[in-house]
Amino acid sequence: MVQSNQLTINQRDVIYETFDDEVVLINLDNGNYYSIADTAAQVWSFIEAGYSVDDIVNEMAQLYQGGEEDIEGAVNAFISELIQDELIRPNQGMEAEGHERKEVKPVHKGDAREKPFVPPKLNRYTDMQDLLLLDPIHEVDEAGWPNPKTDPASLSDG
């Protein structure tokens, strides 16, 4: 279960590009990138528009054919995964203040209500992590510059 009802995209580290019914998300901080489609892209569009978790569940239940409990469980699990991967964050402050939300169009062409609900899926790609060399700078030399910690050859081109 997602603890906070209001969500916000991690704008500092995450960039994303939307293609019809698919979205590609890139986490600049950890090197992971993701593709989401169909119901996952629909949930993302609600998050982007400022919907609360409760509202997202309700909207998804109206948009797709499926049991409400199944939809609630799957949407909550997906949102938890987005939070765990630091793509979005729970936002307690906005909850108290109230939050304005934008209009959302269904990602499906035609009537999505004819479509059975499929649990949203986060496709995660980790093959770029080695380009980040996530070893923090620990020390500098006598001139004030970081010491090389990496074999330069390993930084070479792609």
Binding site: I15, E17, F19, E22, V24, I26, L28, Y33, S35, L131
Partner: peptide, 15 residues
């Protein structure tokens, strides 16, 4: 798909 093209070019460029 365009998404495949984007996935092939964007992450490797960005990182």
């Amino acid at each position: 798909s365009p998404v495949e093209g984007f996935l092939a070019m964007a992450p490797s460029t960005i990182f």
